[in-house]
């Protein structure tokens, strides 16, 4: 139950959505794009979110697309995680997404909403970080396509009134061998302690991590250590652990030291799986 009232709009085109946003914001209103809407609904009821107007983007065709175009896979931002899992166009994404929240909730949570959410984890972004995906963004200045690393630093750096429309991912990455695991405080449900996704492209191993820091990330420095082929896995991992971004989360899910212990083992597993006998 949300204790405040807001206006609800459901545009059918990108242009309409952008205009609506500008108009509302122009009137000094607190306005948001509303995709799955789970963030507003769950944070609003405990006074951690407030809006005057929401723009539901689920009626916009571009945001609901699942399509291969040339060598690219296009995924609309308003697809629910369940829809993506059922269609399974990107197995690594399916794997990572299928660990977010729970199955029923994923019928409401959307790809774009998870990537743009306030929550630390935003696990659905990990596969796109690994795959150097392109993001299609629409805003007052029109549509643009940006390489994810240019615009995702801990979170998606959108300007006011901009919205994520689609992701575009090269087939090469979709077919690459991968490894993904979500480790929780205990057993099979709950937030991540560490979620690790890894991809092998040619001889290069890439990893992206959520749950370690208050943001998901992929780090070139860390990967450089992991890819020092001559060295034993232990020392490559030790090197990787020496260049972790800060801060390391230290909360009810787990202490910072324990998270690093978990990460060390998961990195080891990722290397074993992706390198086969090489480790």
């Amino acid at each position: 139950m949300l204790p405040f009232d807001f206006d609800y709009y459901r545009p059918e085109t990108l242009q309409e959505a952008v205009e609506l946003y500008q108009k509302q914001a122009g009137q000094g209103k607190q306005v948001i794009f509303f995709s799955g809407g789970t963030e507003l609904i769950t944070l609003g009821r405990i006074d951690l979110a407030y809006v005057d107007a929401v723009i539901d983007i689920k009626g916009i065709a571009e945001c609901k697309i699942i399509k291969s175009e040339g060598s690219q896979l296009l995924l609309g931002s308003a697809l629910s995680l369940t829809q993506i899992e059922e269609a399974n166009p990107f197995p690594l994404l399916t794997k990572v997404a299928s660990e977010v929240a729970d199955h029923t909730a994923r019928g409401k949570i959307t790809l774009g909403g998870n990537i743009c959410a306030q929550i630390f984890y935003r696990e659905a972004v990990l596969p796109f970080l690994l795959a150097d995906s392109q993001l299609m963004i629409v805003g007052p200045e029109g549509i643009k396509t940006v390489q994810i690393h240019e615009i995702f630093q801990g979170q998606l750096q959108l300007k006011r009134g901009e919205m994520l429309v689609q992701t575009a991912t090269d087939r090469r990455f979709i077919e690459a061998p991968f490894y993904a695991v979500k480790r929780r405080q205990q057993w099979d449900t709950g937030y991540p302690l560490i979620t690790l996704a890894a991809l092998k492209i040619g001889q290069e191993i890439r990893v992206a991590i959520s749950g370690l820091c208050p943001f998901p990330f992929r780090s070139a420095e860390l990967e450089a250590h992991l890819n020092r082929w001559g060295q034993a896995a232990e020392s490559r991992i030790a090197g990787a652990l020496s260049v972790l971004p800060k801060p390391i989360l230290d909360d009810v899910e787990g202490s910072a030291e324990y998270r690093i212990f978990v990460l060390r083992n998961l990195l080891y597993d990722a290397l074993s799986v992706l390198e086969g006998s090489r480790v």
Binding site: G36, G37, G107
Partner: peptide
Amino acid sequence: TVNVDGWPMKSCLMLAIE
């Protein structure tokens, strides 16, 4: 939980208007 268009939905996570 209810069923919306054949799929399970947590009705506390959905606005009536949706």
